[in-house]
Design a protein around this nucleic acid. Structure first.
Lengths: 181, 181
DNA sequence: TGACTCATGTAAGGCGTTACATGATTTT
DNA sequence: AAAATCATGTAACGCCTTACATGAGTCA
C-alpha cells in the first residue's frame, strides 16, 4: 500500500532548488508552494531526519557561511526524479464555501451573498499576490527552474479569475432568485 | 478549539433535502457532493449515530415504505443553519500536479507534458459530467434547492474550463522551452 | 536587557482512510 | 442458486495539526 505522504517530494524538491536550513525550508514551503501545497510544520523536521538517515539529504557547511544547511545528495536527486514520475495524488476536495452554497436554501440569501463576496475578494487578493510573485521571479537571476515556477503561477491565476467570474455571475443569480420569489 | 470536522454539515444538509438510509447517504455524498466535497465512509455511520443521540436526526418509518430512513429533526435543522453560518473552512491545498510541475526541471519535459495532457482531459471529462448533472436536475420536479445546486455546478464548470485553458497554454509554453534550449 | 527572529525539535490528540465483518434483499 | 447490491457497522493504522519546549543570535 503506497503511502499518501508526499512530504518527501516537497522537501527534496525545495532542496533541489537551493540548500537551506529546516527553518528556511518550512518558510519556503509556506510562502512559495503555499498556493497549491501545504505541509504541516510538525512533519518537516522528522521527514528531514528520515531523509538524512536514508542518505538522500546531507548537512553541509560552506567555508564562507558559518551556518550549516541541508543539501540534497545525488541519491536524493534520483529519488526525487522517481517520486515526481509517480502519478500525482491530490487531496480529496473539501470546499467549505461550495458545501454551504449547496445547502444555500437553509443558509439564506444573505448568507450566500456573504460567501460569494468573500470568495470574490479573496480571488482578487490572490491575483494581486500572483503579480507580486511574478515580479519577484523576474527580479531574480534567470534560472532553468523559473519557467516551471511560472506554470504554477499561471495555474493560480486561471483558477482565481475563474472564481472571480463565477462569484460575480452567482451574485446576479441570487438577485434573480430573490426577485422571483 | 472548534473542531475541523464538518461531516455533520454534509450529513444534516443531505438529510435536509431528503430523508434516506445511511447507505443512500454515503452514495449521495459521493455522487452529488463529490465535485467539491468528500467524506470518508468510515465517518458517516458514527456521525449518524452521534447526531441521532443528540436528537438532530431520527429514524422514521413511513407506512407505505417498509424501509426505515434517517430524517432530520426540527432541532437538526436549527443546528444545520447555525453550522452553515459559520465561516467556511476548506482543506489546505494539496495539488499533486502542480507540486510536480513546480519541480518540472527535475521531472523533465515529457513528464510535464503527460501531467498537462492528463489535467486537460480530466477537465474535459468533468465538463461532460456537469452537463449530465444539469440535465438530471432539469428532469427532476422543480425545487427551491435547485438554484443552489446549480451554483455549485457552475463553480465546477468555471474551474474545469480554467484548468483546460491553462493546460493548453502551458503545453505551448513547454514547446517554447524545448525549442529555445 | 528585553523583544524578536532564527533554529530544531517533541508529544498529544484529532481526523480520516482502508480494510474487515456481517447479514438481508434483490436480481439474474 | 449464485452474484450483486443494499445496509450497517468496527477497528487499525497513518496522517497531520497544534501546542509546547528549548536555546542561540540579533537588534533596539
Amino acid at each position: 500500500m503506497a503511502s499518501d505522504r508526499q512530504t518527501d517530494v516537497a522537501v527534496l524538491g525545495a532542496l533541489s532548488v537551493e540548500s537551506m536550513s529546516g527553518y528556511a525550508l518550512r518558510q519556503a514551503i509556506r510562502d512559495v508552494l503555499g498556493h497549491f501545497w501545504s505541509e504541516s510544520f510538525g512533519q518537516i523536521y522528522p521527514t528531514l531526519a528520515e531523509l538524512r538517515a536514508a542518505g538522500l539529504v546531507e548537512v553541509t557547511q560552506a567555508d564562507a557561511d558559518p551556518k550549516s544547511k541541508f543539501a540534497i545528495t545525488e541519491r536524493g536527486l534520483e529519488h526525487l526524479r522517481a517520486r515526481l514520475s509517480e502519478p500525482p495524488q491530490s487531496a480529496r476536495p473539501r470546499n467549505g464555501t461550495l458545501l454551504r452554497l449547496f445547502f444555500g436554501r437553509r443558509l439564506g440569501l444573505d448568507g450566500c451573498r456573504d460567501l460569494l463576496e468573500q470568495a470574490r475578494s479573496q480571488a482578487v487578493e490572490q491575483l494581486a499576490g500572483f503579480d507580486v510573485i511574478r515580479q519577484e521571479i523576474r527580479s531574480e537571476e534567470p534560472s532553468d527552474d523559473h519557467p516551471y515556477f511560472l506554470l504554477t503561477v499561471s495555474a493560480g491565476e486561471h483558477a482565481a479569475r475563474a472564481t472571480e467570474a463565477w462569484a460575480e455571475e452567482s451574485l446576479l443569480v441570487l438577485d434573480r432568485i430573490e426577485n422571483q420569489s
